[in-house]
């Protein structure tokens, strides 16, 4: 009894899908302020006062609806970091580059962003950071080019 023993055929292709993402009403206000005035703001919960940044319209702590933005200085503290050395198709920067988890003064949650303007060997958790803004801004999170030592 002869079974099928031939090689499978290999197909290679792409799935190409354009899509949109509405950031919503509250986050729109945040991105417009970032683009127009280089101001970073957090979302303040009316019930438990928690400030989440980047702003989300639901309080992560008490599930309340959040509609108020509060301005932050933009300065913050590095919680932890890593340096990326490998390359893949989806990165916004060419490696090597550093990413850090940064907690802004006045915010209760942290953001992940790039760390620049500093030698990788000099990056230390706990260091003070400030944002560097792009000259041409398009109302997205990359309007902050990176955070640098303050």
């Amino acid at each position: 009894m002869e079974a099928v023993k031939k090689e499978p055929v290999l197909f290679e292709g792409y799935v190409i899908m354009p899509y949109k993402y509405s950031v919503g009403s509250l986050a729109s206000k945040f991105f417009i302020k970032l683009r127009d005035s280089k101001v970073l703001s957090g979302a303040k919960c009316p019930k438990c006062q928690m400030v989440n940044f980047p702003p989300r319209s639901v309080c992560p702590k008490c599930f309340s609806k959040v509609e108020e933005l509060v301005e932050l200085s933009g300065k913050g503290k590095l919680e932890t970091f890593t340096v990326v050395h490998y390359e893949s198709a989806v990165q916004a920067l060419k490696p090597p580059y550093a990413i850090g988890v940064i907690k802004l003064d006045g915010a209760d949650t942290a953001i992940t962003h790039f760390i620049g303007g500093v030698d990788f060997k000099d990056i230390k958790p706990g260091m003070k950071l400030e944002p560097v803004f792009k000259a041409k801004r398009d109302a997205n999170i990359l309007d902050i080019e990176y955070f640098q030592p303050a």
Binding site: Y14, M17, V23, S28
Partner: peptide, 10 residues
């Protein structure tokens, strides 16, 4: 209102 336009190519 802000929205992002992106293309996924996998």
């Amino acid at each position: 209102l802000i929205y992002l336009n992106m293309t996924m190519k996998v």
